Simulated scan of single mutants.
Amino acid sequence: MPKAAIYARYSSDLQNPESIDDQFRLCRNLAERKGWEIVAAYQDEAASGASIRGREGMVQLLNDARAGRFDIVCAEALDRISRDQEDMAHIHKLLRFAGVEIHTVTEGHADELHFAFKGTMNALFLKDLAEKTRRGQRGRVEKGRSGGGLAYGYDVMPDHGDGAGARSINEAQALVIRRIFRAFAAGETPAAIADKLNRELIPGRQGIPGERPRSGDTR
C-alpha cells in the first residue's frame, strides 16, 4: 500500500483556521479512494504561499521526503503547496528526486506540465493581488487614512461607515515626537535620542524596551 503524507495551509489571519481541517478531510477522502495509507500530516497556519520561508510544516515535509517516509504528497490544490514559481519548482524537484509523487484533490496527479502552468497562473495572481493592494493603500493614504500598519503618534479610529483606516493623533505620543524633533534640531544624533528614550523607558510601538509583548498585542 502506498504511503502518503497530507499537507494543508491557509494564508492569513483573515481566513478561517478550520480551513486546515477542511483540507485534511478532502485529502483523507482522496487517500481512501486511492487506497493510500496516510503516515504523516503537515500544516502551515497563517503562512503566505508566496515563499517557503517561515513555513515549518513544508520544511519538515521536505526533510521527511528525503528520509523516505512516504511515497506520495497530497494537498487540496497546488496553490496550497506554493504560489511562487521558483519555490514550486524547487519543491517539485526535491520531491521528484526523492521519488515522491504529488497528487491534489483538484488537479489529480501533478506532473511537470501542471507545475509549470500552475506556477505561471499563481505568479500572475500574486502580481495582480499586489497591484490591487498597493492601489487600495494609495487611495486610503490620499484620503488621510492609514494605508496599513500605524505610525507612532496615531490611533486608529472606529469605522463608522465612512471607511476604515481613519486616524487620530495620540497626544501622549505626540509629546514624545515633538521632543525628538527638538532634540534633533539641537544637534543630538538619532542614536543618542533613542538611547535616552530607552533609558527613560519611553514606550514605542512595540512597548517598553525589553518588555515582552502582551498576548494578542499587534503593535
Rank of each mutant, 00 (worst) to 15 (best):
H92G: 13
N122P: 00
F181N: 01
N198W: 05
L113D: 13
C27P: 08
A192L: 05
A31E: 09
H103T: 09
G49C: 07
L30E: 13
A191G: 08
G210Y: 07
G57F: 05
N16E: 14
I81W: 05
I180A: 11
L150C: 06
F117D: 00
H114Y: 06
G187C: 11
E131W: 04
M88P: 01
S82Y: 02
G35I: 09
P190T: 08
D13T: 09
R205N: 07
S146M: 08
G207Y: 09
S215W: 14
R178E: 11
G161W: 10
A40H: 02
Y42H: 08
K196M: 13
I102L: 11
N29P: 00
G147N: 12
A192H: 10
R55K: 06
L95K: 04
K34M: 15
R53P: 00
I38P: 02
L30D: 09
R134Q: 10
H160A: 14
R69D: 10
D155Q: 12
I52M: 13
N29G: 14
P213N: 10
G210E: 02
A65N: 11
D71F: 07
G149T: 03
G136L: 12
D195E: 15
Y7T: 10
N63E: 15
I208Y: 13
R28K: 15
G165K: 02
I72A: 09
L30P: 11
D217P: 00
P2H: 10
I202T: 15
F97P: 00
A194D: 12
R55D: 05
A164Y: 05
Y10T: 01
A8D: 03
F24Q: 07
E76C: 03
R83L: 07
L62T: 02
D64I: 01
